[in-house]
Simulated scan of single mutants.
Amino acid sequence: MNEKILSDEEVKTLFDEVIEHPLFVLELSEYEKSKILDIAFNEKNRIRIQATTFLNNPLDTSILNKMEVLRLNLIYESDLIDNLKEVPKENWLYYFLTEISENAIPLKVLFQNLGYNWNLQNGQVKSIEEPQPEFEDLEIDIEINDNWKKFIQEGNKLSIRQIALLCVYEDIFPSLDKEGTATKIVKFHGFNSPTSGQQLNQHYNKVRKSNDRIFVAGQKAMKNDIQRILPLISDLKKYLASNDISELEKIMNKE
């Protein structure tokens, strides 16, 4: 028996259902999956245009929905432009998709369930069955833990300050000596500028003391950075990061 041809409205209803309930996609036919995939690509393009428009003019929030505006206000407690400058420009798209956009992460999950990987750093969507690029191991004397390494090898990105915080909690000093530990670390994370190693070292020195992490301008942004890297910290070393988050929350609740 031929499968029923779905109307655009019926396909949209299915799409909304699998976005809200990701595992529902497993119950769909190949025809239904192909129709949903078409909408997913259109939605991905819409979000990419939204991100580009916003990043070209971060003061214009007209292209954001109410939830995204609320999320933006929670992230930034001071001047938006100054805070955005702390994020390397090459990470702006990823930052928007993961921290501000309401729909990007659910859409990435949908792509994954349909057999595709949406790289939030460069916006490309590729079949999971396609050969994936090999990543070189981080060649430093002190190895980074498996959670951290796997996170980066899967194509995820961190800002330089987030990397610096990881170095603090993991007891790794990003030195600028002949061995160039700082440069090796940032290159592993995709930062290839000649000054990236120096930037990491500078960020490290700014956050290496507990008071510099807690009594800092932009406490919400600091809390968000620590929360983002918390799953990447070795279990035996998470207590310090968790304590920093608690102290930041105490201070913010008093204000």
Rank of each mutant, 00 (worst) to 15 (best):
I152H: 06
S127D: 14
F188C: 13
E154N: 14
R161F: 02
D137R: 09
V125P: 03
P133K: 07
H189I: 02
F173L: 15
E134Q: 12
V168P: 00
F135L: 10
V186M: 15
R161Q: 08
D171F: 03
I152L: 09
E134M: 05
E139T: 07
N156G: 04
S175C: 03
L166V: 01
K187W: 05
I160R: 04
G180Y: 01
E154I: 00
E170K: 00
K150A: 11
G190L: 08
I144N: 04
D177G: 11
W148A: 07
C167I: 02
S127I: 06
P131K: 09
L176I: 09
N192V: 12
K126N: 15
Q124P: 02
E143H: 13
E130Q: 13
I160W: 04
S175T: 12
I152D: 01
K126F: 13
V125L: 07
D137S: 13
F173N: 15
Y169V: 00
Q132A: 14
Q153V: 09
F191N: 05
S127Y: 11
P194N: 11
Y169N: 01
F188G: 11
P174K: 03
Q132W: 03
T183R: 11
E170Y: 01
Q153W: 03
L138P: 15
S175M: 05
G190F: 08
E143A: 15
N145V: 11
S159Q: 03
E170H: 00
R161E: 08
T181E: 10
A182C: 09
P131T: 08
A182M: 08
I142G: 04
F191A: 06
G180Q: 05
V125I: 15
V125A: 10
E134Y: 07
I163L: 11
T181D: 07
P194D: 11
Q132R: 12
K126A: 14
E134G: 04
E179I: 04
I172T: 08
D146T: 14
K187L: 14
E139V: 12
I160K: 02
Y169M: 00
A164N: 05
N145I: 07
I128V: 14
I140P: 08
K157R: 12
L158E: 02
I163D: 01
I163M: 10
Q153S: 09
E129C: 06
P194R: 09
A164V: 00
V186I: 15
V168E: 03
E143P: 09
E139D: 14
K157G: 01
A164I: 03
E130N: 12
I172G: 06
N145S: 14
T181V: 14
T181A: 10
I160D: 03
E154F: 02
Q124D: 11
E143N: 12
D141H: 10
E143Y: 08
R161N: 02
I172E: 07
E130H: 10
S175G: 15
E154C: 01
S159G: 06
K126G: 06
I128F: 08
I172K: 12
P131R: 04
L165R: 00
